[in-house]
């Protein structure tokens, strides 16, 4: 009796394990596909940022979003809302969006844009909070009579990949008082920091993580980790 129960339990656990294994293989296949996709995007970026964007699969969505943004800009500028001027606006915005929709958003996948926009909106209050905090810090530095500044240049290697995210990070660094991005060379930021504490804050990388989170970057690094673990798992089996 107990033996049959034991066998049953073993069977069940085996089926559960089998299901889990199938599921894990599925997940890893998806992960591998995603990695190859991101790698494809990477290659495309390297090949030609400017002309390669033409092949972007998300062309229509980029066009529509660009059109809406530009039309809002036109309506703000124009201030005349009769039928004639609105139709002029639609024509002009259509021409500009047709010529330039790969310029504003290039290399953005079709499903990603909403996520990126939402995360970017959430990023702005965080950035504002950072600016206020470091503003007080710099004000205290400047107003204290000993002037305890320690200006230095730091080189800062980043894990970000696309141009847009790097520029967002560079401009965020410049916006926060006390630090200024001087140049980006081969994925290495050269930053002028006013103080040791400001530089340490930068090296801790909270801002970089936030920016990577916005543009959904460095995700495939984790997928790579999973794949490595899977290889070890297979070898063990």
């Amino acid at each position: 009796m107990e033996v049959t129960l034991l066998v049953q339990a073993a069977d069940e656990s085996f089926t559960i394990l089998e299901k889990a294994r199938v599921r894990a293989v599925d997940l890893m296949n998806t992960a591998a596909k995603l990695t190859s996709e991101t790698r494809w995007m990477e290659e495309k970026r390297v090949r030609a940022i400017f002309r390669g964007a033409r092949e972007s699969r998300a062309g229509l969505q980029n066009f529509v979003v660009t059109f809406v943004i530009l039309f809002v800009f036109w309506a703000l500028l124009s201030g005349k809302y009769d039928a004639f001027h609105l139709s002029l606006g639609v024509i002009c915005t259509g021409v500009v969006a047709w010529m330039g929709h790969e310029l504003i958003f290039h290399n953005v996948r079709a499903g990603d844009m909403r996520v990126i926009a939402w995360r970017f909106l959430k990023y702005i209050p965080w950035l504002f909070h950072e600016i206020v905090v470091s503003n007080f810090h710099v004000a205290r530095l400047v107003l204290s009579p000993r002037l305890p500044i320690d200006p230095n240049l730091i080189r800062y290697r980043t894990k970000l990949e696309s141009d847009t995210s790097m520029v967002t990070l560079a401009n965020s660094i410049t916006l926060t008082p006390g630090t200024i991005t001087i140049a980006i060379e081969n994925g290495e930021f050269i930053v002028h920091a006013l103080d040791r504490k400001v530089a340490d804050d930068l090296n801790a990388g909270a801002m970089e993580d936030q920016v990577a989170h916005i543009f959904m970057e460095a995700d495939h690094i984790y997928i790579q980790d999973v794949l490595d673990v899977a290889r070890i798992f297979a070898a063990l089996r």
Binding site: L70, F73, V96, G100, L103, I104, H106, M166
Partner: peptide, 12 residues
């Protein structure tokens, strides 16, 4: 990157 993003607005 910044000029790429600004050019459609300048044209409009």
């Amino acid at each position: 990157t910044i000029s790429r993003m600004l050019i459609p607005f300048i044209q409009l």
